[in-house]
Design a protein around this nucleic acid. Structure first.
Lengths: 338, 338
DNA sequence: CGAAATCCTTGAATCGTTTCAAATCGCGAC
DNA sequence: GTCGCGATTTGAAACGATTCAAGGATTTCG
């Protein structure tokens, strides 16, 4: 394997000092225009590639940021990562991705400790993390080590830089759509984390403002996944079908809900309309194609990286709240008998 | 932001030299057992975290590998990345992810050049890339720079280390399943890249071995996506429906095919059975739940990272071919009238 | 013509490690 | 008491950059 060309080689070949070469290449002032050109030309001709490690070691900036997620294979965050990557590439940063896994709280925190060590060892300039991906102590350590932090989560955190989507508004949009289709009794199905709470709150608020409408909130126990949703819906149906629409805290939940309805012989959207949340890539592929609240995932990633870079380079940045949008597809229709 | 503790600090505090501390911490021979323990204890007590940049700069190993994909948001590769990450974390490596985008061949290659520069600048030890993600010249440059390369792709490449899934076998599995359900005239729908070719070949071979069976191959023009599949299927249906089963080169294609069939009033699997390929996460969510050839994506990632590490550390490693598996769900059934 | 100002360039120090030849130490053997 | 030897430790030289005080060369101005 060929030895890489270093700044030293260029200096020697051109008969100037390392310092001059460095300044010339970095467009630092105080270098003769002619010299600078000679250095740049030669550097280009030998395809000189600066060693970022060496640079990072004494500028203190690695131009490396980490993206921390609880699972890498979360359909939602994949698009976010794409957005992050877009901006990173353009601003000269690279991103390393890591998942924080662990079943027990214990192993979770041990893994988190190791992860923090790894990140600090690498001298990352910043991290983008969902709030729940790392325990608070870990975040504290990163902070202490001078690592900029950008939060992704359900709602802005005071004193911290974050990018969020307006979940309350999302809930309102869903509820408004259902109300206008004539639905008056709506069921909300979701987990008990803050995401679901805010979404149900938005829907509840809107319906409360309208006449004769009502939102029943049904909170899922445990992981808010498809299976939990299926079970909850099936159970609820056995009791009584006194609603004409279901608003789900996520698309995954919506799929479970739809299956339960269909298995019970309830037609979607003929008898009951269903609205999801997220607009995951496959939401349009299922039958019926899901009406859902779209989150601008790529934009979320782009905004996050943009703010993180500003935070790293300028020291501060404002948080941002993005706006969700309702996508009407085939899982919602007029309330029966309306 | 607090100054990080360095090896220097430890040396000063313990009254020994930097060299000793370094050797003690790295379990290098030639250090008194007692001294070593004192160093380690103190290091732990101040939560010393070695600076990997500094280390990398003179060992020549960054313990950083890059994963290159054409799009990060390819449902298929997301799981692969998860597998890569699992092994990486365990072996002390970090992974940086990058996408190689670009519409025109021109911009693609310019982007690729930039990417290569970035990777070499970071001194990555190796890369995992789908064959089509980087032009050959780029791979050459990386090779020259001493970067280990591991290929992911449709089939093994002579002289290179790769991890692949046996696509021919996958095709056979799908065809065999259909044959046993009584299907004799099968339509294959797929793109013209090597992936699709091998899969159709497998299916074709199997059916040729059986009596009275036939595979018609229909190649999609352009990107082999859902829309192309829908269009192709709709067109083909308008001509003649002389097949009872469709084998699709991917799950995405299968979705398009199902939609086209359903829109034409053809029941799946009542009139026509459909088999996909990949087993993407949402394959079980759609209606009907898709029968498909499962690729062990996480294992693929794990195998890839494992081999890459061996390649980096021991200099060589064997390629691996993984085995696909048929997952029977609801989109296939007995051939009508069989 | 000399002093001052301006512009470039140099060379050394630094960043946090690893690596390794040379120095030091302790100890048993003669 | 000295020599030799193995076990430790030291200190300096890398690694590939950046940064910056100091010096050299040229120009400008009185």
């Amino acid at each position: 394997m060929a030895q890489r060309t270093t700044i030293q080689d260029i200096a020697r070949h051109l008969g100037v000092s390392k310092g001059t070469v460095s300044m010339a290449l970095n467009d630092a002032p105080g270098v003769n225009a002619d010299t600078r050109q000679r250095v740049k030309d030669y550097a280009r001709s030998v395809r000189y590639r600066p060693n970022k490690l060496a640079r990072a070691i004494n500028t203190g900036r690695s131009h490396l940021v980490a993206v921390l997620l609880s699972r890498l294979t979360d359909s939602f965050y994949e698009e976010v990562v794409q957005g992050i990557e877009n901006v990173a590439a353009q601003r000269g940063y690279d991103i390393i991705v890591s998942s924080v896994v662990g079943s027990s709280a214990n192993s979770r925190s041990r893994n988190a400790d190791e992860l923090v060590d790894r990140l600090i060892s690498r001298q990352v300039d910043g991290i983008i993390g969902s709030i729940y991906s790392l325990p608070e102590t870990a975040m504290g350590q990163l902070n202490e080590a001078g690592v900029a932090i950008l939060y992704l989560g359900p709602e802005p955190i005071p004193e911290e830089v974050s990018v969020t989507v307006d979940n309350v508004l999302g809930g309102r949009l869903a509820a408004e759509h259902l109300y206008e289709l004539g639905h008056r009794r709506v069921l909300f199905v979701g987990g008990d984390e803050r995401f679901g709470f805010l979404r149900s709150q938005g829907a509840g608020m809107l319906l409360a403002e309208r006449d004769g409408a009502h939102l029943e909130v049904r909170v899922l126990d445990g992981e808010p996944d498809m299976e939990a949703a299926y079970y909850a819906m099936a159970t609820r149906l056995r009791a009584r079908r006194d609603f004409t629409a279901v608003f789900c805290a996520s698309d995954l939940i919506a799929v479970g809900v739809c299956k339960a309805l269909q298995d019970a012989g309830v037609s979607v959207p003929g008898d009951v309309s269903v609205v999801g949340f997220d607009d995951l890539r496959w939401a349009k592929l299922i039958t019926p194609a899901l009406t859902t609240v779209h989150q601008p995932q790529v934009s979320q990633g782009e905004a996050a990286m943009d703010l993180l870079v500003r935070r790293i380079e300028d020291g501060s940045a404002p948080s941002r709240v993005l706006t969700p949008r309702l996508i009407v597809r085939d899982s919602t229709g007029p309330a029966p008998g309306a």
